[in-house]
Simulated assay, not measured.
Amino acid sequence: MNKAPLSARLTVWALVALLATPILITLVYSLSAQWGAQILPRGFTLNWYQTLWSDGRFLAAFGRSLLVCAAALALSLALILPTLFMVFYHFPRLKGLMNLLVLLPFAVPPVVSSVGLLQLYAGGPLPLVGSPWILVFCYFALALPFMYRALANNLEAVNLPDLMDAAHLLGAGTTRAFLQVVLPNIRNGLLSALFLAFSFLFGEFVFANLLVGTRFETLQVYLYSQRTNSGHFTSAMVMSYFLFIGAATWLALRLQSRRA
């Protein structure tokens, strides 16, 4: 293997340092007892993390975010997998239309969408504003582009029609072929789609703040409400969020490598 030139290695390390510096500074600040006008912090402590993780309001907001994201992803998975299979196997001419439709959630800014949803669901027969259900449905729409694109790329790579024809020749029905042949071949893409969508939804703020706010306080709404609190405390919150996403990424990569 050819060794990378010095300029390439320096460029990579400079980029890594640029990305890592804000994270390291936030971590040090979250662990410092005091850090004001002086260059270095005055002592280190875990009190900010202890205060954070003993706060029942924070734990409840964290749990609500997990619940809403899990429900939205489960709904997305239940709808997008059969739809993708039907499009790629039975109606391949609809691929272009589907590519256009799944991008519609990003065509309208979240603030504009929120105002429209407030007008529609603040009252009437479906008063969903303020309830977790409106977040689940909004997050479902936001997750669709990530889920569709990742899974569509995998279905293109495995050549779905040939795979299904081979399964049929061996005596498998369509449902059995999908469950036992197609799904195992796209599981890495499925895992990537779920994690990518989860990472985006877990950090979503606009819909959560405008549509439910403190009536169903999620993690991002809680973070926003604590913006005037101690900087050490908010840094501990940011690092806890970052470490959780990092741990989820590591777990997803481990699972993906084991199943490859």
Rank of each mutant, 00 (worst) to 15 (best):
A14N: 04
L210R: 09
F198G: 02
T11E: 12
A4M: 12
R93S: 11
L219E: 14
A208C: 09
L223Q: 13
L223T: 09
G123P: 00
S131Q: 00
L160S: 13
F202P: 02
G213N: 15
L73R: 05
S32M: 09
T234Y: 13
R215P: 00
A14L: 15
S192P: 01
L190C: 08
Y222N: 08
M237F: 09
S114P: 00
V238E: 06
S65H: 09
A236R: 07
S199N: 13
Y148S: 06
R176C: 11
S65T: 11
R42H: 03
L219S: 07
P105N: 11
I25V: 10
P82C: 09
W48I: 04
E217A: 12
Y29W: 07
H168P: 01
S225I: 11
L179F: 15
F88Q: 08
Y224N: 15
V221A: 12
A37C: 01
G96I: 14
G246Q: 06
E204G: 07
L97M: 12
L79V: 06
L27V: 08
L201H: 12
L66F: 07
F244V: 07
T83D: 03
R93T: 04
L155P: 05
N47M: 04
T26A: 12
Y29L: 05
G171W: 15
A208E: 12
K95Q: 10
L73A: 09
A4H: 02
A236C: 11
A17S: 10
A150N: 15
D165M: 15
L103A: 08
A157H: 10
E217P: 08
H90S: 05
L52Y: 06
